[in-house]
Simulated assay, not measured.
Amino acid sequence: MARTIAEIQDEILNEKKKQSSLNGLNSSSKTSIWGLWVNIVATAIWVHEKIVEKNALISRPHTLNWYREQALNFHYGSPLDPNSSNGMSLIWKDGSYQFDTKNLSETQIEESKIIKHCAVSEIDLETVLNPEKKVKEIFSDYFHNKVGVVFIKVATEKDDKISRIDVPNELFAFKEYIARIKDAGNQVYITSDDGDILKLNLNVYVDPLSIYINPKDIEYYQLKSLNRTLEAEEQAKLKKYEEDLLAEPLDIRNGSLILNNSIFPVLDAVKDHLKNIEFNGAFVKTFLVDAIQKAEGIKIPILNKVETSIAKNPNDDDNNDLTDVTRIEYFIPKAGYFDMDALEIEVNYIPYTFYRDKQ
């Protein structure tokens, strides 16, 4: 920020005091020649600093983080006409496009910011090009892999949950806004999708003194938890249990705290962990297991299977099947987040009784 004229004058006067040869310039009159020259020089320096400041602002490099800042600062309902009378038009000011919000309250300003989450990325040319390729192949890969394209994922919030921008005009207006402020020549690809689907299967050994498990369901959980080919007798038992479940389902209290059946430590830990993953952040299996391990009454959490897919379109007969990604240690959901309403968690609750095996 440029200094004020008064600040520059003070610095000049402080420097004058250090020069004994200027002690004769001691008139306190506002019209003294030396005082006027100090003011003229200070004003000239101030003008210069203002020009430099403005040029620095205009020439600010538009990094990926700059695009993210602009996205989060988008105001929906703002007319793009600078002559609009509602006071929230998109105007050119101090070397950049800005929303004029002088006639709005802080509440109105925040309510108009519909972009609550944003992630910006691009593909590095070096990752898709082989220096040994011919020139025509290089250019082919350049465009096919969308190198030089800025990818922007955005989402809003509904009922305290991350959600895609599903009002058509909202996304259309946001794309028009980015088109106006982006760097000339840059290609920008904007998406706002439904959250990815996630399905988890876990074996969790729990403290039977803390976690409720109906005794009739224990053998079923144990059979389901076996990560090997079942023997004929075991297969028959499991099939019989599954048939019986049609008439008498598993106890809905299984996995809850004995002292409070409304709290399910495993399920709550999984949901809390997923909610706390930053937008467009990675789902890491080890981090999820660590989060479950810290829950009350949990002894050994084992993540058996992880399946995921992009959001399914209910109007499309050819819905996307879940993909088994258990072997992958971490991955980023395509939409940037998971649909918590579509989350499926299957838990086999097994009493932790290993201590008796040592006796």
Rank of each mutant, 00 (worst) to 15 (best):
L125F: 12
L209E: 15
K134H: 12
Y76H: 13
R228C: 06
K240S: 11
W37I: 15
K54G: 01
E132V: 14
K134W: 10
H48M: 13
I165M: 10
L80Q: 10
H144P: 00
S192T: 04
E111W: 06
Y97R: 10
T43A: 15
G255N: 02
L267I: 13
S78A: 13
I277M: 06
I300G: 03
T101A: 01
K134S: 14
F354N: 15
L13R: 14
A119H: 13
S32Y: 07
I252T: 07
I165H: 00
W66Y: 02
L223Y: 02
E132H: 12
A247C: 03
D81K: 04
A184D: 04
I328W: 11
D341A: 14
F99L: 05
T43S: 14
V270G: 02
A184P: 01
P314W: 02
I252N: 04
I218T: 12
Y349A: 08
G281R: 04
E69G: 00
S210N: 13
L238D: 06
L246D: 06
Q9R: 11
N276L: 03
F99R: 04
Q70I: 02
V52N: 10
D160W: 01
D357C: 06
N203C: 07
T43I: 09
K240R: 11
K299Y: 07
D207M: 10
L104N: 07
M1T: 09
N227I: 04
S28N: 13
I211E: 07
Y67T: 01
E110N: 12
K93A: 05
D94M: 06
V52H: 06
E176R: 15
Y221S: 05
K199V: 03
S210D: 12
D160G: 01
V150S: 02
K134R: 13
N276Q: 08
S309I: 02
D193W: 04
L125S: 10
A236M: 08
M1G: 12
T101G: 03
S89V: 00
D268R: 09
P301A: 06
A2D: 05
F264S: 05
A311T: 03
A291H: 06
Y355F: 14
R327F: 04
N276W: 00
K153H: 12
E170A: 09
N23R: 14
S59A: 13
T286P: 00
P314R: 03
E170L: 05
E231W: 08
S78I: 03
N313A: 01
N65T: 09
V147I: 12
T308E: 02
S89G: 09
H75N: 10
D290T: 09
E176D: 12
T107N: 12
Q19R: 13
L198T: 04
S121N: 14
L343A: 08
E242M: 11
D339F: 10
K146C: 06
V270M: 03
T63Y: 03
Y189S: 13
I45R: 07
N304C: 12
H144S: 11
D321G: 08
K305V: 05
P249Q: 05
A184V: 09
W66D: 00
L250I: 14
L343P: 02
T107H: 13
Y241R: 01
K199E: 14
L57H: 04
K294H: 07
L202T: 03
I190K: 04
S256E: 04
V38C: 08
A236V: 07
